[in-house]
Amino acid sequence: MKAWPKVDLGALFHVEKGKVGIMAATPGSFPLVTTGEAFGTHIEPHFSGDAVCIPLISATGHGHASLKRLHHITGDFAVGSILCACVNREPERVMGRFVYYYLSACKDSVLIPLMQGTANMSMKVGDIAGVGLPLPHLDEQRVIVARLDALIEKTREVEAHLDAVERDVEHLLALRFRDVIADAPLRPMADVAPLVRREQTIDLDGIFPELGIRSFGKGTFHKPPISGSEVGTKRLYRIEPGDLLFSNVFAWEGAIAIAQPTDAGRFGSHRFITCRAVPGLVTAEFLRYYFLTDDGMLKIGEASPGGAGRNRTLGLEKLMAIQVPMPPLAAQQTFDRLQADVAALKAKHAAIRQANAALLPATLERLFAGSA
Rank of each mutant, 00 (worst) to 15 (best):
A357C: 03
A193G: 06
G40R: 07
A257F: 04
T313V: 15
F216V: 12
G309Q: 10
K68E: 14
L70M: 11
L204M: 15
T155V: 08
M115A: 07
L314W: 12
D243M: 12
P45I: 00
A347Q: 15
K6E: 09
H270E: 10
N248L: 05
G242D: 05
Y237R: 07
Q323T: 05
L175T: 13
K346P: 00
A25E: 01
I213H: 01
D127N: 15
V52L: 08
P5Y: 08
A78D: 07
S229N: 12
R176P: 10
A369C: 12
V165Y: 07
L9D: 01
R366I: 03
G132V: 00
T201C: 15
G265N: 05
V52G: 06
A351Y: 01
V145A: 01
D263P: 07
P136D: 06
M189A: 06
H64I: 15
D149P: 00
L298S: 10
D163N: 15
I181L: 05
D205K: 13
A129H: 00
R337N: 14
A184P: 07
Y290T: 03
F246E: 04
S227H: 07
K19N: 11
K234L: 14
A362Q: 14
D336V: 12
G306L: 13
Y102K: 01
A259E: 02
R353T: 12
A119D: 09
M95Q: 10
L12Y: 05
T233L: 06
G49P: 06
A362I: 05
L173R: 06
R310C: 10
G306K: 09
I300W: 05
C275E: 02
G61K: 03
T233K: 11
A182V: 08
A321N: 04
E253P: 01
E240F: 04
G28S: 08
I300R: 05
T74E: 10
R93Y: 11
E285I: 02
I322H: 00
A372Q: 08
L236E: 04
Y101F: 15
W4C: 04
A330L: 11
T201A: 15
A51C: 03
S371C: 13
G96M: 03
E365T: 15
R142L: 13
D294L: 09
D294F: 07
Y289A: 03
L195D: 14
I73K: 02
L67F: 14
R198F: 10
R97S: 02
D163M: 08
I128M: 11
G21C: 05
D191T: 13
Y237W: 13
L329C: 01
A251H: 07
D179A: 13
L148H: 03
Q354K: 04
L148N: 03
A65R: 08
V52D: 03
P194D: 06
M189C: 08
L329V: 07
W4H: 06
G232T: 14
S304Y: 04
V15K: 01
P45K: 01
T274F: 02
R235L: 07
E285V: 01
Q141H: 09
V158E: 02
S29A: 13
T26V: 15
K19W: 02
V145G: 03
F98R: 00
T60M: 04
C86N: 02
R197S: 15
F13D: 00
V165P: 02
R276Q: 11
D294M: 10
L111V: 12
P261D: 09
P113M: 07
Q332N: 04
I352K: 04
L172W: 13
A340N: 01
P241D: 10
L364W: 15
P55V: 11
